[in-house]
Design a binder for these strands. Structure first.
Lengths: 247, 247
DNA sequence: AAATATTTGTCCGTATGTATT
DNA sequence: TAATACATACGGACAAATATT
C-alpha cells in the first residue's frame, strides 16, 4: 500500500494536495496531536508521512501561516499559534454578549445592512405571518477580541418592529433594541443546527479561508407571551466557535 | 469588477473551479433555490452566472451526477435528485432510534469495534474517573434507510460496564444494552456541537466524498442518580443531518 | 568559541492538471 | 479538437537562521 493511499490523498478530487494536507494538519491541531503551543515535525518528516514532496508540504504550511494557525521560524521549526475555541451557549435565554462574557475581552455587534422585503415562506411560517407579509431583514456581524465570530441574517415583523435596525446600529445590541420596542424579555423557542461550507459573502465577512466551514443555527425568538418576534439564521466560523447546548 | 471576483471564484485556493462550482450548486440545492425536484438552469446560463466557461460547469455537474445529487437528461435538462435532511433531536432524553422514528423506515446501529484502554484526560474528567482508569472504548455506526448517518466513539467505565460492547452488538441498541447493566433510564447531561472536515476513517465509514463536513456532538450521559455513564463523540454527515435543539 | 547538524527559505527546472479561447 | 496560460506537484541544490556538540 502506497503512502498516498494510506493517508487518503487523492488527485482527481478537484482539491489540491497542499490543501488536503493543510486541512489534515489543521484537524490534527484541533485534536491536540501537537500539544499546547506545540511544534510540528520538520517539513521533510511531514513530506514523508504524507507521501508528497517537501515543497507540497510547504504550500500547506504557507496557507496555515496565512490563516494564523501556524508560525514558521527559520532554523527553529514550525509552531502552533494557540487560540482556543469560543464556546457559545444555546439555551432558553440565549444572548450573544452575555454568553461570551468570560471568554473574550471585547464583544461587539455590527449592523451591516437592512432592508424591507416580503416574507419568504419559511420566514412567514416562523413569525406567524401571512405569506409575503412585510418584514424587515437585518444583516449583522459579531466580533470577539477583534476576530469575526458570526454573521447573522434576521427577520422581524415590519409592522411591530419598524426602525429596529437603527436601534441595533445605535446600541450594538439586539437585546437593547428590543427594549425600545417594548420587549422587556424574550426566549429562544427553537434552534436547528447544521453545517456547510461558507459561501463567498460569509467567507469575506468572517475573514475565512476558502473551503472553511460554518456552523449554521436557525432560530426563533419569542416574547414573554410566546409570540414570535425574530427569525434568524446565524453562521458561526466553525474553527473559532463551538455551540454548547444547555439542558 | 469581474464576474470571477463577483462570484468568489479564485484560482489560488487549491480548490479547482469545477469543484467550487459543484459545492455552490450543492449548497444552492440545500437552500432550496431550485425547488422540489427542480430543474437547474441550462449550462450556458450557469456558466455566465459563475463567470466561467461552459466546460467548467459541465465538470461540476458531472461530479454531482456521480455523487447522486443531480440527474442529467440529454435534451431535457439537469434535475435535482431530492432527499431531505434528517432532523436529529438533541434533548434531555436523547435516544437515536426514537428521534428518527417518523423520518426513516429503517434505523440500525452497528458495532464496529471495541477495546479496553486507559482513560485520556478529557474522558476521565467527563466520566468522573481517575486519570488512566480502565475504560471501554466502543466504535459504532448508525444508518437510516440504508444510508450512513453517524459514527460515534463512546467511552464507558470498564468496572461498571464490562461486556456492554457485546450487549450493543447483540441488541443493536445502547438503550437496551444499558438495561442489561441495570440502567433503566438515563439522561443527556451536556452536548457540545462543533463542525469540521471528516477525517479519512469517517469518510470511508460514512461513505462521504473527500472534503465532506461532519457535525461533531460531544456528549455526556448520566443515570437517574446523576452519575456519568457514557462519554461520546458522534460525527454526523452534515449533508444528511441537522441537529434540532429542544428547549 | 568553533565546527557540525538541523530546519526553514529561495531558486532553478520539468511534467502534469486545469481553464480559457 | 487544438493552442495557450496558469496552477499544481516534483526533484534537486544551496542559502540563512538556529541548535547542538
Amino acid at each position: 500500500m502506497s503512502a498516498k493511499a494510506a493517508t487518503g490523498m487523492d488527485r482527481r478530487t478537484g482539491v489540491a494536495l497542499w490543501r488536503q494536507i493543510a486541512d489534515q494538519i489543521r484537524q490534527g491541531i484541533g485534536a491536540g496531536h501537537f500539544g499546547e503551543g506545540g511544534r510540528l515535525p520538520p517539513e521533510t518528516a511531514l513530506a514523508e508521512r504524507f507521501g508528497v514532496n517537501r515543497h507540497t508540504v510547504r504550500g500547506a504550511i504557507a496557507a496555515l501561516v496565512q490563516e494564523g494557525v501556524l508560525r514558521a521560524e527559520q532554523g527553529r521549526g514550525t509552531f502552533v499559534e494557540k487560540r482556543k475555541r469560543l464556546s457559545y451557549p444555546i439555551a432558553r435565554r440565549t444572548r450573544f454578549s452575555e454568553g461570551l462574557r468570560d471568554q473574550a475581552q471585547e464583544r461587539r455587534g455590527h449592523l451591516l445592512d437592512h432592508a424591507h422585503e416580503a416574507a419568504e415562506p419559511r420566514v412567514a411560517a416562523a413569525l406567524g405571518l401571512d405569506a409575503d407579509a412585510p418584514v424587515l431583514r437585518v444583516e449583522t456581524m459579531s466580533e470577539a477580541d477583534g476576530r469575526p465570530v458570526s454573521r447573522a441574517t434576521s427577520w422581524f415583523d415590519a409592522a411591530r418592529f419598524e426602525g429596529i435596525a437603527e436601534a441595533i446600529a445605535e446600541t450594538g445590541s439586539v437585546t437593547l433594541a428590543y427594549r425600545r420596542h417594548g420587549v422587556e424579555d424574550y426566549f429562544r423557542q427553537s434552534t436547528i443546527v447544521s453545517a456547510r461550507h461558507a459561501d463567498a459573502v460569509d467567507l469575506a465577512a468572517l475573514r475565512l479561508a476558502p473551503g472553511a466551514i460554518v456552523l449554521v443555527a436557525v432560530a426563533v425568538n419569542v416574547d414573554t407571551e410566546g409570540r414570535p418576534i425574530q427569525f434568524s439564521e446565524t453562521r458561526f466560523a466553525a474553527d473559532r466557535v463551538e455551540l454548547a447546548v444547555a439542558e
